[in-house]
Design a protein around this nucleic acid. Structure first.
Lengths: 228, 228
DNA sequence: CCATGAGTTAACCTAATGTTTACACAAAAT
DNA sequence: ATTTTGTGTAAACATTAGGTTAACTCATGG
């Protein structure tokens, strides 16, 4: 299942900024649209209904704050992500911006990289929330859902105990990657807990047994990895 | 259903910051808990399962980044909001922090007001997505009507006491999802009430008994979930 | 053929949960 | 007022399943 690219509308009256930001976000795989003032931003927002709107605060024909207020008042834009971009780095503006309903507030001069990180962070959060499936790991015919605490394999539910589940979840979180025994210990058991040597093996065994599918590979002298 | 105050865990090795931030967030109506180093942060996070964790980056016994990584690797903390707090204002740290899975990154010196705005913004976004409250729930042959305070099972009315009802409603509001004991406590009982260990069990038992249908599953060491 | 690391098994211990009873307290009924 | 009834909590005890260990076996390589 390919996620369709997220659409971003960016509004700023400085062409340079539009270009730099568009370029960088485009490179990240986003679909970028631009507007050069407040009214145009509103217009295009209504046309496109983008996933995220980046608004410069100081713009002709409606400031970013005004645009935000107008959009937020419409039900259609309740859930749309909004980021303010501004040269005014004083506290008051920032607070006001956030209280207007923005999700983030980034000061100019902008570092494209930082902006991208913040954009990514917002989308990451969003996907976690509306996609109940987003959290779960799906690999081939195996599904691991940490919210429901459930493992499904070929549409058969498998019940794992807490430690077993955590162990499997850890390994499956990075398929193919080898986890050292130490890593597993500190991730699943915690650093201050001391357990015997064979404990991990026993749990690995139980998971293998319950899954009935050979997907945990032993790398002797190193650790374990998950692979189908 | 009344909105329960959100729980926030803040970890910093400087007592001054802990105090200032605690005070200000408390004044906003949040329920604030503190930790003074990385390990303590992890420990308390596991106990409390707060809604938001604010992590200082530079802490003894595990940095904020490490804490974040450890928590994020665990299924139970996938959804928890995380904010980094740091004196290092360089780009690279910020980007790295956000990529570790944080939701926001705030530079020191902190303005309490700005921090609060950002915390509010995060919660505002979060609440938009899971607003399921108020509606009646219909699952198979079970109906739960929070308005009439009534549970119907196979067209038979079942009378539940207040706490029993709230407990069932909570679990049924997200079928399949596991609710931690802590979550149940803070949602049904509220976080300032201290009740004994066995109280939840007793109520669970009563609900199970009255429903007569086995639809509440216990996930040992984790919590309970509703499923038919 | 020993050394090392991993797999297997079953027994064991205990933390976590289930169950029951009793009691405080409030609301409703008398 | 007094009784009755129902709810919520605590305390005591029973039970179970999860986690750990230990002893043994197996596989591999030097």
């Amino acid at each position: 299942m390919e996620a369709k690219p997220k659409q971003i509308l960016i509004a700023d009256d400085e062409p340079d900024i539009l270009e730099i930001v568009s370029y960088n976000l485009g490179k990240e795989g986003y679909e970028v649209y631009t507007a050069k003032d407040g009214n145009e931003a509103i217009e295009r927002a209504k046309q496109l209904h983008p996933d995220l709107i980046i608004l410069d605060v100081m713009m002709p024909r409606k400031t970013g704050v005004e645009v935000c207020q107008i959009l937020r008042s419409q039900p259609m834009f309740q859930d749309t992500l909004i980021i303010f971009l501004t040269a005014m780095s004083d506290e008051a503006s920032q607070i006001k911006g956030l209280e207007t309903g923005a999700d983030d507030y980034v000061n100019k001069p902008i570092s494209p990289k930082v902006l991208i990180s913040r954009v990514n962070a917002l989308f990451r959060r969003l996907n976690k929330d509306d996609n109940n499936t987003g959290k779960s790991i799906v690999l081939g015919n195996i599904t691991i859902d940490p919210v429901k605490f459930l493992v499904t394999i070929n549409n058969q539910e498998v019940v794992l105990a807490k430690k077993e589940f955590e162990l499997l979840y850890l390994l499956a979180s990075r398929p193919g990657r080898v986890f050292l025994r130490n890593e597993i210990l500190s991730q699943v058991w915690g650093n201050d807990v001391i357990v015997g040597d064979r404990t991990i093996d026993v749990h690995i065994r139980k998971v293998r047994q319950k899954l009935g599918v050979d997907c945990i590979t032993t790398v002797k002298g190193v650790g374990y990895k998950f692979e189908l």
